[in-house]
Deep mutational scan, measured.
Amino acid sequence: MGFKLLSKLLVYLTASIMAIASPLAFSVDSSGEYPTVSEIPVGEVRLYQIADGVWSHIATQSFDGAVYPSNGLIVRDGDELLLIDTAWGAKNTAALLAEIEKQIGLPVTRAVSTHFHDDRVGGVDVLRAAGVATYASPSTRRLAEVEGNEIPTHSLEGLSSSGDAVRFGPVELFYPGAAHSTDNLIVYVPSASVLYGGCAIYELSRTSAGNVADADLAEWPTSIERIQQHYPEAQFVIPGHGLPGGLDLLKHTTNVVKAHTNRSVVE
């Protein structure tokens, strides 16, 4: 069995187990497998329904001669939608809004960016022009300005110390501490036991640490421990890039980060 097929099978099995364990909360999309990078042309966006009122959005972007996937989250909030992270750029984010209108038909009224990198804030200006209120932590807003990236308009308070959590509509926002970046936030959907790890969490097929220019490698494993301790009931975990899975993604990420750190020390 090929690795790609095995990865998709694991996603399907995880979703099936969740649907059985929580039949009222989960209505997993039966329309197909989780979209992969090879299936999404740059400039297009796919939506994948995880649970009743919960979707991931998947886009792709060219970077350094390669094409990478990027995940975000959409959560229903009454007759409105909360968006977590842009679709990595203005063109993708405009396509995301169009796809949401086509498939869901509810307005996106608020959006949260989970850290300051372009795959999370690139497209904020498109959201703002569409009347979406954009939010991020003060740290993310400051770092985005320093980096020359787009800056969300509103500040999220109460997320300055490791372990801080605040309720934001249908989700809980959690600051686990520094990891992929010093400002990275985690998003949890309690009604569906869905954990969105953003770039602080890796997919299972990833074996290298990737972009760690703004990471705190020493603190990252401790931050992941905080996530595990705060959300032990999480059933569906979405990484910032690639295929979702279960809580095993947290341990896998820790292993990859520690291996990278150990290699760096040896070198």
Rank of each mutant, 00 (worst) to 15 (best):
L204R: 12
V112Q: 03
S193K: 15
E157G: 12
I17Y: 12
L81R: 02
S22T: 11
E203M: 01
A192I: 06
H154S: 09
E225Y: 09
S181V: 03
E267T: 06
G148H: 11
T36Q: 12
H117P: 00
T14K: 11
S155D: 14
G210N: 05
R128Y: 10
L73M: 14
D216E: 09
G123D: 04
G43A: 06
G43R: 06
E225F: 11
Y48T: 09
V126Y: 12
V187P: 04
G177Q: 03
V237F: 04
V189F: 05
A218T: 13
H241A: 01
A234S: 09
V11L: 08
I50N: 03
A25E: 14
I40L: 15
K4I: 10
E233G: 12
G2L: 13
H117M: 00
N71V: 03
L247R: 15
T253H: 02
D118P: 09
G210A: 06
A136Q: 02
G197Y: 03
G105A: 12
S30W: 08
L249F: 06
H115I: 00
T182G: 11
P176F: 01
G169V: 04
A15F: 15
V257N: 03
G169P: 05
V42D: 13
F63M: 14
G131T: 06
H154R: 09
I58C: 04
T222R: 12
S160P: 07
N255K: 13
A51N: 10
A98Q: 13
A25C: 14
E33A: 10
F26N: 11
T109A: 10
A87S: 05
P170A: 09
F116I: 05
V108L: 08
A129L: 10
A178C: 04
K8R: 10
I224M: 07
P232K: 13
S162F: 12
G210S: 05
K102E: 12
L204K: 14
S113V: 07
G169Y: 06
Q229T: 10
V257R: 02
A200F: 04
V189N: 02
R142I: 13
V265P: 13
G131N: 11
F174L: 09
G158R: 07
C199A: 02
P41K: 11
S160A: 13
Y68W: 04
A178T: 08
T182A: 13
F26M: 15
T207V: 13
G163V: 05
V45S: 06
S139K: 13
H154K: 08
V256G: 01
S62C: 06
V256F: 06
L82P: 04
S7M: 10
G43F: 05
I186V: 13
S30G: 15
L83R: 01
T109K: 14
R76S: 12
Y135W: 11
A19M: 15
I238E: 01
A213V: 13
I74R: 03
I227S: 05
D29N: 10
I74H: 01
F174T: 01
Q103W: 10
A178L: 05
